[in-house]
Computed example of a mutant assay.
Amino acid sequence: MINIANSSSVSNFRAAVSGGVDDLHGLRKALNDAETEHAWFKDKHKLIRAARMPHGGAHIFRVSLLVFLFMVETGMNAIFLATGNEQGYFGGILVAAAFSFANIGIALLVSIFCARLVTHRSWFVKSIGALFIAGYAALAVTINLGLAHYREVSESLAEGAGTIVMDRLWENTAGLEDVNSWLLFIVGLLFGIFAFIDGWFVLDPYPGYAGVEKRRNAARENYRDSKAELVEKLQEVRDEHNETVKDIIKGLGARQREHRAIVESRAKLLALFAQHQEQLERACNKLISIYREANVEAREDPATVPKYFTSQRYVLPRIKPKITSDGEWGDKELSDSIRKAQEQLNEQVRLIGEECGKSIAAYEELDRLHPDKTHG
């Protein structure tokens, strides 16, 4: 049992380490490539700060803010647009939702994918980003003015309002006649600006930096989790071996107690057998005594009584059980053998612990083969 437990644990360790090193080697190389890319990107674009990434509560807050802006703008626009809409407030909600989606959605897309180009080191890329921002500003003003014109036209027309709005935008862009229309325009523009600012903080302001940081973090997390999982498997193999050793040690103690119980039971049985033979002898002498007394009383002449009636007693031939001790261990020999086995098991536990440490060190060696090349 000791040899099987030891050889099995060593084999399991070597198999686990061999497969684990192969798996971690690829993951560590992928992490090294991601770190090299990260360092190259920072050097190329002269970045010394860490990338700004969305995390936890702040990210949830920004998403919640966008949803809140959309719902509030839709509700406010629906109140203004419900008047004159043939479907009433429900129709106003549909039109308002469409305008809010366009207003907030365009602001979000431009701020995330286009506006951040103005932070690029290249002046050409900066100019493209500036053009996108200017284009968005013009588009945002147009969308919200269109909504305000639509509100005025829809109050008096049930059909053809869209065509009239386009004509009014072309001929008299700022020709709003109702203060509520101007209020609708300003509120929509403000909500678009809020959405634009919120989208700006979704990712790092420098183009591409967030993607590089995300890839490096994903590779690092993948490597760290895989390494922790492999180390945990090694520890499970070690703990399983140690539990097996504990069971063997407990079994050795139980076998020693069983051996003592067998020896004591045998000695007790031999003593009972000797007592049984003595009891048989006493019974025989008692029966003979009864017979002789009856024989003496039946005789007329006392001189004819045999002398041995009074001088001899029956002696039962004793049977001595033969005990073969060939190959039998004494208590001292058994104790010495168990002590040596326990020492061997304890030494094996120590060796398995060392093997586990060496196996984990083999995983750590990958970090020295592929050192972290990130400069910041």
Results as ranks from 00 to 15, higher is better:
residue 233 K to D: 06
residue 244 T to S: 00
residue 266 R to Q: 09
residue 256 Q to G: 05
residue 270 L to S: 04
residue 274 A to R: 07
residue 257 R to P: 00
residue 204 D to E: 02
residue 223 Y to G: 03
residue 226 S to I: 07
residue 206 Y to T: 02
residue 225 D to F: 01
residue 222 N to Q: 14
residue 276 H to G: 09
residue 238 R to S: 07
residue 221 E to T: 15
residue 246 K to Q: 11
residue 230 L to H: 13
residue 222 N to I: 10
residue 239 D to S: 12
residue 217 N to H: 13
residue 247 D to P: 00
residue 246 K to P: 03
residue 258 E to N: 05
residue 190 L to N: 03
residue 219 A to Q: 02
residue 248 I to G: 01
residue 221 E to K: 15
residue 251 G to T: 07
residue 275 Q to E: 09
residue 207 P to G: 07
residue 188 G to F: 09
residue 268 K to S: 14
residue 243 E to T: 13
residue 189 L to P: 01
residue 256 Q to H: 10
residue 234 L to Q: 05
residue 249 I to A: 02
residue 236 E to G: 15
residue 261 A to Y: 15
residue 201 F to D: 04
residue 261 A to K: 14
residue 249 I to M: 07
residue 237 V to L: 09
residue 265 S to L: 11
residue 209 Y to G: 05
residue 267 A to S: 12
residue 240 E to L: 11
residue 278 E to W: 15
residue 242 N to Y: 13
residue 215 R to E: 09
residue 279 Q to F: 14
residue 226 S to Q: 13
residue 276 H to T: 02
residue 205 P to L: 06
residue 197 I to A: 07
residue 196 F to I: 01
residue 239 D to P: 01
residue 213 E to T: 06
residue 216 R to E: 00
residue 247 D to Y: 15
residue 192 G to P: 02
residue 192 G to A: 04
residue 266 R to F: 13
residue 269 L to W: 11
residue 215 R to D: 06
residue 196 F to K: 02
residue 232 E to D: 10
residue 260 R to P: 00
residue 230 L to A: 10
residue 214 K to T: 14
residue 213 E to K: 07
residue 243 E to M: 14
residue 265 S to V: 06
residue 257 R to E: 10
residue 214 K to M: 10
residue 264 E to H: 11
residue 256 Q to D: 08
residue 230 L to M: 08
residue 187 V to Q: 13
residue 278 E to Q: 13
residue 248 I to V: 06
residue 226 S to D: 10
residue 243 E to L: 15
residue 245 V to N: 03
residue 226 S to T: 11
residue 226 S to K: 12
residue 214 K to R: 11
residue 248 I to E: 03
residue 278 E to V: 12
residue 250 K to H: 10
residue 217 N to E: 13
residue 198 D to H: 07
residue 194 F to Y: 11
residue 210 A to M: 05
residue 198 D to T: 12
residue 263 V to I: 09
residue 229 E to Y: 15
residue 188 G to M: 03
residue 278 E to P: 00
residue 251 G to W: 09
residue 200 W to V: 03
residue 230 L to E: 08
residue 200 W to M: 02
residue 220 R to E: 01
residue 269 L to T: 05
residue 275 Q to K: 14
residue 256 Q to C: 04
residue 214 K to Q: 12
residue 196 F to N: 00
residue 190 L to P: 02
residue 240 E to S: 12
residue 201 F to R: 10
residue 251 G to N: 07
residue 264 E to Y: 11
residue 250 K to N: 11
residue 266 R to P: 02
residue 208 G to H: 01
residue 194 F to L: 10
residue 238 R to Q: 12
residue 231 V to D: 08
residue 193 I to K: 11
residue 236 E to A: 15
residue 196 F to P: 01
residue 221 E to Y: 00
residue 208 G to D: 02
residue 258 E to M: 10
residue 212 V to F: 05
residue 207 P to L: 08
residue 226 S to R: 12
residue 265 S to T: 09
residue 275 Q to W: 09
residue 260 R to Y: 11
